[in-house]
Design a protein around this nucleic acid. Structure first.
Length: 457
RNA sequence: GUGGCCAUAGCUCAGUUGGUUAGAGCACCGGGUUGUGAUCCCGGGGGUCGCGGGUUCAAGUCCCGUUGGCCACCCCA
């Protein structure tokens, strides 16, 4: 690279054809699962007034944004770092006319002025899924179910990824019941959020300050509280505490899963909804998931690689006060965002990224036909008209740009670009169609080639 | 914003205590082997060694700075 070459900006990606196909593969998966689950696609501007972001997050956010002012202008703008403010703005603007619930999704680029590191870039794609106007746990479960469906579509299993769910109200209630009063919750949440980064003994010491003994600290260290009361049993011991069926709230519901957390007064309906959605096997209730502290009001969740490697694949939760904050009517809402960077990293690590043929296939980019002339003048004259007729009929048709008419080399080129069929023109009126997958081929009149390729067998 | 490691062809890399016009494999391009995705053969393009400065008779190699990458911290909406 010479001194006059300008590099791509820090934290951005150049997408060559194979990379663009991968991105298309992921965004198509996002779109398909969203539509299947009844969400309508929306999008907003990729830049907004700077104030839209400082209203919610304060001035401190500005250093994390790409913000700018037009030369000679007086307005401050920022490239969007997240979608929620735009979503709230859009909903607020038409709140009176929108159905309840309103189910929206979008995919698109977002920008954050952070230093790049593993799983985090300055420009990335994000999928946002939200339900507005429905306060029920069913809505919570619905967005989680949509998220899990995407993971399934991409080939993940509950052994690869875990959906870590918490409930801030439930956690707060549970803490109060154990003598940790509300004013201290913020500090405790911060401690919980830091769990992965603190040395274990320091974390235990921190919890001791809130009155938790070593045994109870174990619950937080493991991060996962999963209480299963075996059929017939009435209680089970968890981290030094005896938990009864009654406490789980399932004593009257023998048909419901007894696989709940022991702070389940508030969580039980959510757990039941998740069970009904068929995704409970992906879910761990995890007290350490608190999602910053920003604006979540109830359920919160993150998707993590099962061993805890990598940063979160997705995160979201309930934000019942936010639409009002952006000038709309009081509106309960729940949703999540998923970035492409960590998702793609883990897919590659787990061997779930399709090979090139599969990727082009699922991205709809595989050529239907590769047209070859054997070089005789009569065949040569038919090459471009035939390609044109294929394309006019809607087929993805290619031909070589090379000078050689060596059929072997040209078939190799057809194979390299993953064409489904090759058509070898051998005279003014005859050609051979070869199925590149099976190797089968047959000769037929040239004027039947188009019909053969466009007619499903 | 802080710190560590790194930078030679599109990719993966070699390049001696500093010493002539900087190399290989793969990929790419052209040709050949009777018109079938292979193998093989011949030929070709492509790098002022990320960039800038310094030391030296001489710098891909040593020093400083800078840009970018990777990783961690801060942060993570």
């Amino acid at each position: 690279m010479g001194s006059n070459q300008i590099q791509a900006p820090k934290g951005t990606r150049d997408l060559y054809p194979a990379d663009a196909a991968k991105r298309r593969f992921v965004t198509e998966a996002w779109r398909k699962v969203s539509v299947r689950h009844g969400f309508d696609e929306i999008d907003g501007p990729t830049f907004e007034h700077l104030a839209l972001y400082t209203v919610k997050s304060g001035e401190g956010i500005v250093s994390e944004l790409f913000s700018f002012r037009r030369e000679g202008g007086e307005q401050d703008y920022a490239l969007r770092p997240e979608f929620t403010p735009t979503l709230a703005r859009m909903f607020a603007a038409r709140a009176g006319a929108l159905p309840r619930p309103t189910k929206w999704f979008m995919t698109g680029p977002f920008f954050r002025a952070e230093r790049p590191q593993r799983g985090r870039l300055r420009e990335f794609l994000q999928w946002n899924v939200d339900v507005l106007g429905d306060p029920s746990p069913q809505a919570d479960a619905e967005v989680i179910a949509c998220c899990v469906a995407l993971l399934r579509d991409l080939g993940f299993t509950p052994e690869h990824l875990r959906v870590k769910v918490n409930h801030r109200d439930a956690l707060a209630k549970w803490l109060v019941a154990r003598g940790v009063e509300a004013p201290r919750h913020a500090d405790l949440f911060k401690l919980l959020d830091q769990r992965g980064k603190l040395p274990p003994d320091q974390f235990v010491a921190g919890l001791a300050a809130f009155g938790f003994n070593a045994q109870q600290a174990e619950v937080f260290i493991k991060g996962v509280i999963r209480v299963e009361i075996p059929p017939g049993a009435t209680s089970v011991e968890v981290a030094g505490e005896r938990v009864t069926r009654e406490q789980l709230g399932v004593q009257d519901h023998p048909e419901e899963p007894a696989d709940l957390t022991f702070f389940s007064d508030a969580v039980r309906p959510l757990a039941v909804a998740l069970a009904n959605a068929g995704v409970l096997d992906w879910v761990d209730f995890d007290l350490s998931i608190v999602r910053g502290l920003a604006y979540y009001t109830g359920m919160v969740f993150e998707v993590h690689e099962a061993t805890g490697a990598e940063r979160a694949v997705a995160g979201g939760g309930r934000y019942d006060n936010l639409v009002e904050l952006f000038g709309g009517p009081p509106t309960p809402a729940v949703g999540f965002g998923m970035g492409d960077v960590v998702l793609t990293l883990i897919m590659q690590d787990k061997g779930l990224m399709p090979d090139e043929t599969g990727m082009l296939e699922r991205a709809g980019m595989r050529p239907d036909v590769f047209v070859i002339s054997n070089g005789v003048p009569e065949a040569e004259a038919q090459l471009h008209p035939l390609v044109a007729s294929f394309r006019a009929a809607g087929l993805h048709a290619r031909h070589t740009s090379k000078a050689t008419r060596n059929v072997g080399k040209l078939l190799k080129e057809a194979g390299d670009c993953r064409a489904r069929h090759a058509v070898i023109i051998e005279s003014g009126r005859s050609c051979t169609i070869k199925d590149m997958g099976t190797g089968e081929q047959r000769q037929l009149p040239l004027d039947q080639a188009l019909g053969t390729l466009t007619t499903p067998r």
